[in-house]
Amino acid sequence: MMDLLPVLLVNGVVFGAIYAINAIGIGLVYNTTGIINFAQGEFIMLGGMLTACLYGQAGLPLLVAIIGGVALTVVVGLLTERLFIRPLWRRGAKDWTYVFMLFAVATVLPNLVMLGVGRDPLTFPTFGGLPAVQLGSVTLSSQALWVLLVTVAVFFALQGFFDRTLLGKAMKATAINRRVAAWLGIAVEQMVAMSFGLAALLGAIGGVVFTPLISTQFDAGVSMTLNGFAAAIIGGMGNMRGAIVGGLVIGILQSISTAFISSVYGDAVTYAVLFGLLVVWPHGLFRPLIELKNEEI
């Protein structure tokens, strides 16, 4: 039993990376809008599915298929904001309306994918180009290494974006106080659109690096959303460093519970832990970037 542990840990870290990316995506939208993005997991599914289609059915080279898949997912993210969120925003809709709307998006997207592509899981080849790494008794496959490297790269790229660029700072300002940001001349609506675009970009990147490991299918999004949300809760909503820690905690927990408790109830265990966490630490182990204010959504 104990000799399994290193393998499970490494597996958990790799899965944790995807949850971390997801948690960061959920946090980005939450920061600019105060909305929990119920469609975040769908971006992961879309990134993987679209790339797999472009590669497998359209016969494009892998790199082109990846770029295409990511670009299309970002377009979907931007359209979601433009067509479904902004109209509600402009009419000053009540906050549950956004949650309902994003849930509708999370319902319709996978069903459209099912109609277009079918119910079968799809995948595409591993990227290659990186060696497999031997860590003691455990082998980290080349694709798993890609997952980890891309997650780290995404983390530092986003940090640089928020700390160094004017646009990033404007988004951060919007996150901290929307009203003051508007007074300072920041185009808040555009920041909201940006946050949806970025969230979709993150999701797509996550989906693309992860799909060669386990494949993906039309209904993979919901559990991705829930796991990402669990990671975001542990890490404190919108806190990027926290999201990484949260992702790893959930990933490792899931990997261990699947092995030692039951593969059938693996997801159930995660959800139970998520529930327990919310009961004990409703605000996570790390501080959220912003506390949700009452008069704003």
Binding site: G34, I36, F38, D95, W96, V99, F103, V222, S223, L226, F229, I233, V264, Y265, D267, A268, Y271, A272, L274, F275, L278, V279, P282, H283, L292, N294
Partner: peptide, 24 residues
């Protein structure tokens, strides 16, 4: 416990709860 917290955590928790119930 959940309704003491602001925001739409109840939505997410009930979604997770429903998944558990259906799985079980």
């Amino acid at each position: 416990p959940i309704l003491r917290v602001r925001g739409h955590y109840l939505a997410m928790i009930t979604l997770a709860f429903a998944q558990i119930v259906i799985i079980v």
